[in-house]
Design a protein around this nucleic acid. Structure first.
Length: 258
DNA sequence: ATGACTTGCGCGGCAAGA
């Protein structure tokens, strides 16, 4: 079973790339972030014609997440823990699998910049809510994949130039502590379970020649429950997607589960 | 060359991203 995650940076700007990706990578499940549109503006017909069920949690202008699945899914929208939070950043689905079900979430964790503002406080509070929710999900003892744009650089080896990120909300000690707290619940970073290499990036800024100079960072992650980690076979970062015309600034990351 | 872009909204630049 193949599960992928991709911050598409506006799905309406990326329909051609999306359809090409579904055709070439053939994921069973694709988690999207930053669709940047309302549910009814999602290119549903095109994606359904490609053989996918579509579940969106959209929002006007900003944010928005989706889960595309070859097989029909049962969907829950929103991250519990704050009824006043109106950002569309979390959608969860139960996906049928040959040997039962896999629970998959598409996550768009807040950026949090600039630090020392309400935006950074919102990021940390959102991470605390995610930790609380993950703690509950882990009690189900089922294969669980928390996939998405975490806006967290976990470690120095996950940035081409770590010093450039000193003081940034993606790399601040408090951010990385929260990420470790999440991992330490018993989750496995799928890419790191397969490789300890440096230079495995998933994002390159549009500015300052970040892509041609390979000044990337690894911020898109798939975190696995023990039951999902038992099934992990391989991962891939589809870096070629960054070299296309009008690319997203993120590339898809995918895993194969047995 | 120390490399300031891309999106939505909506029609003029601003906010947001990372």
């Amino acid at each position: 079973m193949r599960i992928a995650t991709w911050n598409v940076n506006s799905v309406r700007q990326r329909v051609d790339h999306l359809l090409a990706y579904l055709k070439e990578a053939e994921p069973d499940v694709l988690c999207l972030q930053e669709i940047k549109c309302m549910d009814d503006a999602f290119p549903r017909l095109e994606v359904e014609s490609a053989g996918y069920n579509v579940a969106t949690h959209g929002q006007k202008t900003f944010n928005g997440v989706a889960i595309l699945s070859k097989r029909p899914i049962e969907v829950t929208r929103g991250l519990p823990g704050d009824d006043a939070d109106e950002h569309a950043r979390y959608i969860e689905a139960l996906v049928p699998h040959d040997t039962g079900v896999v629970r998959v979430a598409s996550i768009y964790l807040p950026n949090g910049n600039p630090p020392l503002t309400d935006k950074y406080a919102y990021k940390l509070a959102w991470m605390d809510r995610l930790i609380a929710h993950a703690r509950g999900l882990l009690k189900l003892e089922e294969p669980l994949v928390l996939a998405g744009d975490y806006n967290v650089i976990p470690d120095a080896r996950d940035a081409a130039d770590p010093q450039a990120w000193d003081g940034d909300a993606l790399y601040l000690p408090a951010t990385r502590e929260r990420f470790r707290e999440l991992i330490n619940l018993g989750l496995t970073d799928a890419v790191r379970a397969c490789s300890d290499e440096a230079g495995l990036y998933t994002f390159w800024d549009y500015q300052a020649g970040a892509w041609p100079r390979n000044k990337g960072i690894r911020i898109d992650h798939l975190l696995l429950s023990p039951q999902a980690a038992d099934l992990l076979q391989s991962y891939a970062i589809d870096k070629h997607m960054r070299a296309l015309e009008k690319p997203s600034d993120h590339v898809p990351v995918r895993i194969d589960l047995a």
